[in-house]
Design a protein around this nucleic acid. Structure first.
Length: 205
DNA sequence: CCAGACGTTGTT
DNA sequence: GTCTGG
DNA sequence: CCAGACGTTGTT
DNA sequence: GTCTGG
């Protein structure tokens, strides 16, 4: 599961860490939520760029945007087959850059849940595996680009809090994940595993 | 053939 | 767009 | 994802 | 319970 995150990096850090072709505009949002617009990293005319998109994937064939309420995550186990995701899985993979993501823990006797922040112990950004899609609203012709974050089973670090977690890609996987020419479904699928336990630390938000 | 769905999470 | 159910 | 709303009428 | 807004 991954329904809330934080992106708070300078354009310089984003460009350096993700090896972007150009520095993106400044973007800071400590509480990115589904339906919000945030930058995603993908190839555009062969160049790796951070471009804005809306969180909640709308398939190109969708008649309206209601489905986006339920497509902000895609399950790694089924993403290759589901009608809403399979086209994007083949040709429109992206990295969702985050400084951290949030999960909640219910406290007995408390009304509100406790918010927990998961980030890199080395304080570098995290590369979440995502898909993006292009959609046109029939009534207006308005073009909308949207994305989803792929989830997988929790690793041991995450398991006490939740049974799902976002897929976090290691640097060695970035090129193949973003490349449209990567056609081997098994290779792609192999990247969608829970990350090692020591890639994350957790503090109350 | 047409009509209708197409999704995830957490919680009970 | 494409698959499933009727 | 969580938090918060969820309704109508008439009168000022 | 379920939808909407953020």
């Amino acid at each position: 599961m991954c329904g809330r995150y934080d992106l708070n990096e300078s354009p310089q850090i984003l460009a350096l860490y993700f090896r972007l072709f150009a520095e993106p505009p400044t973007f800071r949002n400590a509480d990115v939520r589904p339906t919000n617009t945030a930058p995603i990293i993908r190839l555009h005319e062969g160049q790796r760029l951070a471009l804005p998109a809306r969180w909640g994937l709308i398939p190109s064939w969708s008649k309206d945007d209601k489905i986006a309420q339920h497509t902000f995550n895609a399950r790694a186990e089924t993403v290759a087959e589901k009608p809403s995701f399979r086209a994007a899985f083949k040709r429109r993979r992206c990295i969702v850059p985050v400084s951290a993501f949030f999960e909640w823990r219910a406290i007995p006797g408390e009304k509100k849940k406790q918010k927990l922040r998961f980030a890199s112990p080395e304080q570098h950004p995290l590369a979440l595996a995502g898909l993006w899609e292009h959609w046109q609203r029939l009534e207006t012709g308005e073009c909308v680009e949207t994305y989803t974050i792929i989830t997988t089973t929790a690793n041991d670090f995450m398991a006490p809090i939740h049974d799902r977690m976002p897929v976090i890609l290691g640097q060695g996987d970035w090129d193949a994940w973003l490349d449209q020419a990567t056609g081997n479904p098994l290779l792609l699928q192999s990247m969608l595993a829970p990350c090692p336990d020591d890639w994350l630390e957790c503090v109350p938000a």
